[in-house]
Design a binder for these strands. Structure first.
Lengths: 287, 287
DNA sequence: CGCCAGATTGACACGGCTCAAGCGGTGTGG
DNA sequence: CCACACCGCTTGAGCCGTGTCAATCTGGCG
């Protein structure tokens, strides 16, 4: 156990309040206070700490205040899959709200701070402060939407598009919480983490990153991401931020190119691959 | 839209009440009545009906009482992806609870009946009947869990394992709602639908199904699934029903073999990954 | 009887995986 | 201060699972 005790400025929720509009924007002072006092521990944890083990019983939610966390799943053949990345303001294990055993674990990818909210207190909070319940609903549904997009990515996008899409998503999510510097941000994932997130291998991630970089779209080096050409990158992978359901950033990150002509094909009965594969303006050489 | 009006035994929620333990099991008579009267329309719809178009505004939930529905997403290159299948008792578009525009559409895969619950009434219901809100929470989180498993499948399982896993999951889900006949059930999906669900192509689905059949594991023909060897099939794909969070069926469908599953690998089996990753499996600490 | 969506098959291409070696930093102990 | 170990990154060669393209077959139905 490497988790230290609460200390310094980690001992409050200020970071969370300031950075996650859609969790706290609609809460008044009373709600925020109620939330804060319901949270038991606030812990400072080091990179590599497991907040929750796969298949272990659980009875509390972990709300990430600072740092990065990952949900992970060890598959039956021993391989690993990462179904979610948590950044400040995210809840690492929302399912613990109702289930006492989750089929994934949660580990810290960097040092950080975590608020622990016992399930029973969360339920009590929902009863007394409906606005908090609303905020959690939004979180749950947004998480669902992100998961849907990730699944779609793995099912229907190429390796380089998947990587590009993930980097786009993270830029948006990190911008909201003030963790970006223009079009750059720190990303404490190894190439193997990225591979396990996207359903690829680390070797292929390595080659894909080189390809994206040689196309002058984005550089990922030394745990830092720098997006050189947002318009080209987002167009290349078909990134459209609406699935994040963050009204605030729709403008800033809206696709600058029309969302491609292949859109109006509503009838599900149609062929799944209508041949039309518009070459995106600046696709890097290797797909 | 070919939705007809309510008719015959479609005009009530009896099917739903009877079949979805975790949606209605914890509701008393008053809750059920409240739910029923909150639902506006109950519609009989034909196969191919679109309940919701991708990116269209929406303001009501569609609760499937009978038949099959699919969420679908048309990707930027024109290909299709199916992130969820709905069977009786499922909610086709849960996100509509809070978002007024969804990034997926919903279509009927078969004829069926659908209850329409306007968002505002759902919210009112939650306020007056907390047990209903609880039931919806469970649904939302279970859905999330299924999505996670699907993503893991696409990221880390072979084509034949993915197909097998889907067929296992559907057997369990359909058994709960009384739509199976022993280890058989009707599946109104074309091979192309299956392909779009699993992130594959219909040609490959065809070959994979033949392979599974030649291994005497499962037969999928004429829109009907017959599982010949549940133990072998579930072991082959590493199916463990816990992610469905259905206490009732844990015994019946529990894996009969230890999940290590180095067994029953016809020509389908893929080289497994023997390398366990110590960094995640033997993590030293838990909070 | 003809039509048509869906299922099936074959030949071939290629994206991503596997295996394996080597490189570069960085922390640790002698 | 060096030697070493370790971990993550990089690169190369070759393989194979799955996609692509295209033709043909099948069964249900008007």
């Amino acid at each position: 156990m490497t988790a230290g005790s609460a200390g310094g400025d980690a001992g409050n929720l200020s970071g969370l309040k300031a950075t996650r509009p859609w969790l706290f924007a609609n809460l008044d002072a009373a709600d925020r206070d109620a939330f804060e006092s319901a949270c038991g521990d606030i812990r400072t944890v080091s990179a590599g700490t497991d907040l929750l083990r796969q298949d272990a019983p659980t009875s509390a939610l972990h709300i990430l205040l600072d740092g990065w966390a990952a949900r992970y799943k060890i598959m039956e053949d021993g391989s690993r899959f990462i179904p979610a990345l948590a950044v400040p303001g995210d809840i690492c294990d929302l399912d613990a709200l109702r289930f006492d055993q989750l089929d994934y674990g949660v580990t810290m990818l960097s040092a950080g701070t975590v608020a622990v909210l016992p399930r029973q207190r969360a339920h009590a909070l929902f009863a007394t402060n409906p606005a908090i319940a609303d905020a959690f609903w939004s979180l749950a549904l947004a998480e669902n939407s992100i998961l849907t997009e990730w699944a779609a990515s793995m099912g229907r996008r190429s390796a380089s598009q998947r990587v590009a899409h993930l980097l786009c998503e993270l830029l948006v999510r990190l911008t909201i919480v003030g963790k970006t510097d223009g079009h750059s941000y720190d990303l404490p994932l190894t190439q193997e983490h990225i591979a396990d997130t996207l359903g690829l291998t680390s070797v292929h991630i390595n080659r894909t990153l080189q390809s994206l970089r040689s196309g002058d779209l984005v550089t990922v080096q030394h745990r830092r991401v720098t997006i050189h050409d947002w318009a080209a990158l987002s167009a290349f992978c078909g990134f459209r931020p609406s699935y994040l359901h963050l009204e605030t950033v729709d403008d800033e990150f809206a696709p600058e190119l029309p969302p491609s002509g292949a859109r109006v094909r509503h009838q599900l009965a149609q062929a799944s691959r209508p041949t039309l594969r518009p070459s995106f303006t600046s696709a890097p050489s290797a797909l």
